[in-house]
């Protein structure tokens, strides 16, 4: 086994990510439209922008995939003419890096809903750090800032954790994940039988 990502892994990750790039782009007007409702209902939707990384990891389960997916999805969003402009690239990179970090902490061995939710939370924390520099969020009134945090974290766990896991499970049933994951120990054992 060669180390690192093969062309197949990269191509599959980037194709998935670009699909999410389109979704990310279409998600922005939805988010902006919900925003004036106030009370940070919009933040519940924010998790959508973290979905590509955990999902790509769940499908391919290799180191580096989450980072690549999130960065590629954000550049896809940029190429679609994102409202957030080049800052999507920075967001994507930070979110991808932090999700990757969590997955690395588990040595890429665990791929359950808890781990991807943690990765989603890490992405979320990363986005908030950049928001702090960009959006003066510290200047919101305290109760409002609290709501902001809660809504964004809950949204990310729901979308980039639970939904990502559900989607990956459904994809496993179609059998496509077998194409990219390569042979498992179980497959090798079945050859001996």
């Amino acid at each position: 086994m060669k180390k690192g990502l093969k062309l197949t892994d990269i191509l599959v990750t980037i194709v998935i990510s670009l699909v999410f790039g389109v979704i990310y782009k279409l998600w922005s007007p939805v988010y902006s439209a919900v925003k004036p409702i106030g009370l940070h209902v919009d933040q519940l939707l924010y998790g959508m922008w973290f979905l590509a990384g955990p999902l790509a990891f769940l499908i391919i389960r290799k180191p580096g995939v989450a980072l690549l997916a999130e960065t590629a999805a954000s550049s896809g969003e940029l190429l679609m003419g994102s409202e957030w402009g080049l800052s999507t690239l920075i967001y994507g990179l930070i979110q991808g890096l932090l999700a990757e970090l969590i997955l690395a902490l588990f040595r890429y061995k665990k791929a359950n809903v808890l781990v991807v939710s943690l990765a989603a939370i890490a992405s979320c924390a990363g986005s908030i750090v950049f928001d702090y520099f960009q959006g003066y969020i510290d200047a919101l009134v305290w109760w409002n800032l609290g709501l902001f945090f809660i809504a964004r974290f809950v949204g990310s766990v729901l979308i980039a954790g639970v939904i990502a896991y559900g989607l990956a499970k459904a994809l496993e049933k179609t059998g496509v994940t077998g194409l990219v994951r390569g042979s498992t120990e179980e497959d090798v054992r079945s050859l001996d039988d």
């Binding site: 062309l7 197949t8 191509l11 599959v12 499908i59 496509v176 994940t177 194409l179």
Partner: peptide
């Protein structure tokens, strides 16, 4: 995913 795999 299938298409990407075939292209790769």
């Amino acid at each position: 995913i299938r298409r990407a795999y075939r292209i790769a």
